[in-house]
Design a protein around this nucleic acid. Structure first.
Length: 256
DNA sequence: ATGTCACCTGGTAGGTGA
C-alpha cells in the first residue's frame, strides 16, 4: 500500500501531470494541495475516467485540497471541525483502513505578519483535532505541505534561513508538538540522501542549483509506523517543462 | 540577481500570494 502527498500549485494547470504521475505511481491515496479551484470546477470526471475516486474541498484562487484514492474514501471531513476557517486547507478520509489527513498548512508569509499569527492558531486547532482523530483511528497518516522545515538539515542554507519563515523556532515547535502526539516523520525512518528537498523556489534557478527546503511531510501514527517500508521524494515531476514548485512525497506500507 | 509562476481584476498591465 502506498500513500502520497503533492502540492500541485493549481490543479487546472497540473491535471495532466497528476494523471500521468498516478499512472506511473498507482498509489492507494494521494492528497493534493493548492488545487486553486472552486468545488464546481474540480475535474472529478477526469479522475473517474482514469479509475480514481476523488474528494475535494476548494475555494476561489487560493488554497484548495483533494483526496484521490483507488477505493472510495469513508468518513470524509473537510477542514478542521469547530475551527471556523474561510480557507480550504484540510481534507481527511479513511482509505483501506488508514485514516488519511491531507493538509495545506498556512504559509505564514513572515514571522511578524498577521498571516503568521493565523498559521499558529491554525496549527493549534489542527493539533487538538489530530489528537482526537488518533483516538478514533489508530492507523493514521498526517501528510501535506506543512510549510515548515523541521530541522536545519532540511534547509539548503540554514544560516541564511535562520529565523525566516518555514524555519522559525515557533514553527519548528509546532512540528514537534505534532510529533509529541505519537507521530513520526516517515522520511527520517530511513537513510536519505543529504540535501533532500521537497520544494524549490521557482526563482533563482533554485532547482538547477538544488537550493530547496523539505517542507512536505508524511507523519505516521504509532500503530502505522511498524508498517512503513519506505519513504521517498519523487523529484521527477519537478523536471517537467511546466512543473509545480513542489515534488511528491511517497510512503510505502506493508499490508495490515 | 527579487533570475518565477499562477491567479485576479480589468484589461492588454499591475497587484497578491507563494
Amino acid at each position: 500500500m502506498k500513500l502520497a502527498t503533492w502540492n500541485v500549485n493549481s490543479l487546472a494547470v497540473r491535471l495532466p501531470q497528476v494523471l500521468a504521475w498516478l499512472e506511473s505511481n498507482p498509489v492507494d491515496a494521494l492528497v493534493l494541495q493548492e488545487t486553486k479551484l472552486t468545488d464546481d470546477k474540480f475535474p472529478q470526471a477526469d479522475f473517474a475516467a482514469a479509475g480514481w475516486q476523488a474528494q475535494w474541498h476548494g475555494q476561489k484562487t487560493y488554497n484548495g485540497v483533494a483526496l484521490i484514492s483507488r477505493t472510495e474514501a469513508a468518513d470524509v471531513v473537510r477542514n478542521i471541525p469547530g475551527f471556523g476557517d474561510e480557507q480550504a486547507r484540510v481534507i481527511a478520509g479513511t482509505v483501506a483502513g488508514v485514516r488519511v489527513i491531507g493538509g495545506y498548512f498556512p504559509n505564514g508569509q513572515a514571522p511578524d505578519s498577521d498571516k503568521f499569527v493565523y498559521k499558529m492558531r491554525w496549527q493549534d486547532a489542527l493539533h487538538d483535532w489530530v489528537r482526537e482523530e488518533l483516538s478514533r483511528h489508530p492507523q493514521l497518516a498526517l501528510m501535506g505541505d506543512f510549510n515548515v522545515a523541521p530541522e536545519d538539515r532540511d534547509v539548503y542554507d540554514p544560516v541564511a534561513w535562520a529565523g525566516q519563515i518555514h524555519c522559525t523556532p515557533e514553527e519548528r515547535a509546532q512540528f514537534q508538538r505534532l510529533l509529541a502526539l505519537g507521530l513520526t516523520d516517515a522520511f527520517r525512518l530511513f537513510e536519505q540522501p543529504v540535501k533532500s528537498w521537497s520544494w524549490w523556489d521557482y526563482r533563482n534557478l533554485a532547482f538547477r542549483k538544488n537550493q530547496g527546503l523539505r517542507i512536505d511531510h508524511i507523519l505516521v501514527s504509532e500503530a502505522l509506523k511498524p508498517r512503513v517500508a519506505a519513504c521517498s521524494i519523487d523529484k521527477l515531476p519537478r523536471k517537467n517543462e511546466r512543473p509545480s514548485d513542489h515534488a511528491p512525497v511517497v510512503v510505502e506500507l506493508t499490508p495490515a
